[in-house]
Design a protein around this nucleic acid. Structure first.
Length: 420
RNA sequence: GUGGGUGUAGCUCAGCUGGUAGAGCACCGGGUUGUGGUCCCGGGUGUCGCGGGUUCAAGCCCCGUCACUCACCCCA
């Protein structure tokens, strides 16, 4: 019970049989993007700390107190990536991916890290599948990105989620709105910490969960009511395209996201089945980010979908996703000579595309047959020294129990045929 | 960082007003020296998180500590 080692705090682990569902979720989240012209990008899990400071924003919680930061042996400050977009933008700029035809469409998957207090659905290492579409600010592209996420969730069978959608404005209309909100918040009676937040990041106050705060916010000005005409047009077009795509959403004028770079279209998919963590995926447009990181002034839009949280949402809905790996055939040797022959046979079968497992160790025929049964294989092949003398194997169909003798030399072909 | 809850077998958990640890599942062996799933028989696989205290006696009471967990905060 008292183990010498345990997994680091807040890190989820997946092992059979449940790991099959995790893999299936990850694949399902990526598939719509793969089918829409997005190419895979593999990136480092750690980057120059400054990339996140400049990209995500110094004042965000993610950067100011949730990054795993350390100095490498050359004295450079390194951070485990807390999100994916900044790294993708860095790679796009560094490798000139934005010098060709636009948009650049990329997808990625992998682990991310935030040093938060863990709780249900919130981990220190979590997985995301993300996409980024860079270089074109066509609202139809915004709609595509959102619909890819929606399609991914739907393909898993999820029905209990809601798409929350809003526009956060741009460099033209956000600053005046922000000032307006700040003035409004300044007249309220808020506790010290909330007041500090109102000064630093007023938008963040809007989604305060406490009823006494929400009451005071009833009359708060909203960004969607104060968009410039370009942002207004863009947002209207996004909604038109989304409707055409058959995506359903809910207007969420108080939607707040934790990263500074979001502009215009912003969205979050929420699901009620994961305790107090409701977001299973989210994203938005980030029109100033690339320039901020030293690249061309190109906009982009993307999302990050939480693999762990989507997995939890599937469980909450009672969906069975994915199947554990199974073999077709289970080989059972009896005796040393038979063992040698079986091992060789196993190799031949696998090369021939037949999923094959073997009874290892020496647990006797009974134990081996038990293992064959548990493996879920459709056929067991038993070869004893007695069979070897006459060049045959016993081929047993496990679900019916019927057994026949087959020539060893023709076994691979017989099995391929029966399994076809 | 701040609260609450929980730590007993591989897993899920029971264990009364303190009396020296149990169930189901899983696992292993046998019934069947060449045949699984069902059935029958057998096996407990444990530093009761850790350390201290009270007591004739602590899984149970007290103190401390660690871990896990849920929530606040924040977010995928």
């Amino acid at each position: 019970m008292t183990n010498l080692f345990q997994a680091p705090k807040g890190v989820p682990e997946y092992f059979p049989p449940d790991s099959a569902a995790f893999l299936a979720v990850r694949d399902a989240l990526a598939k719509p993007a793969c089918n829409a012209g997005y190419g895979y990008i593999e990136l480092p899990t750690f980057e120059d700390t400054n990339l996140f400071v400049r990209g995500v924003g110094e004042s965000t919680d993610v950067v100011s107190k949730e990054m795993y930061t350390f100095d490498d042996r050359g004295g450079r400050s390194i951070s485990l990536r807390p999100e994916g977009t900044a790294g993708v933008m860095r790679a796009v700029i560094e490798h000139g991916l934005d010098r060709g035809q636009l948009p650049v469409k990329l997808w990625y998957a992998g682990p991310f890290f935030r040093a938060e207090r863990p709780q249900q659905g919130r981990y220190r290492q979590f997985h995301q599948v993300g996409v980024e579409a860079v270089g074109i600010d066509d609202p139809a592209l915004d709609a595509e990105v959102i619909s890819l996420a929606d399609e991914a969730y739907r393909s898993l069978g999820l029905t209990g989620y809601t798409l929350m959608l809003t526009s956060l404005g741009c460099a033209v209309c956000r600053p005046p709105y922000r000032e307006m909100l700040q003035t409004f918040l300044g007249r309220l009676s808020l506790d010290e910490e909330t007041s500090r937040r109102a000064a630093l990041n007023p938008l963040r106050v809007l989604d305060d969960k406490r009823p006494e705060v929400q009451e005071q916010l009833a009359e708060a000005p909203l960004q969607v009511d104060h968009l410039c005409s370009e942002c207004r047009q863009h947002y209207d077009a996004v909604r038109t395209h989304l409707a055409a795509l058959g995506v359903r959403w809910q207007e969420a004028p108080r939607l707040v996201r934790g990263l500074d770079y979001y502009t215009r279209t912003t969205f979050e998919f929420q699901h009620p089945g994961l305790g107090s963590q409701s977001g299973i995926g989210g994203g938005g447009r980030y029109d100033g980010l690339m320039a901020q990181l030293g690249g061309q002034d190109l906009g982009g839009i993307g999302f990050g979908l939480g693999t762990d949280r989507t997995y939890l949402a599937c469980r909450a809905e009672g969906l069975s996703v994915g199947r554990p790996e199974r073999c077709d055939v289970f080989l059972v040797p009896l005796g040393d000579a038979a063992k040698t022959r079986i091992v060789a046979l196993g190799g031949l079968l696998r090369v021939a595309g037949v999923r094959t497992d073997i009874a290892y160790g020496d647990r006797g025929l009974k134990g081996a047959m038990k293992a064959a049964d548990r493996s879920g294989a459709r056929y067991a092949v038993i070869v004893g020294d007695r069979d070897l003398e006459s060049g045959v194997a016993q081929l047993k169909r496990l679900n019916t129990g019927e057994q026949s003798e087959v020539l060893l030399t023709g076994l691979v072909d017989v099995l391929k045929e029966r399994l076809a």
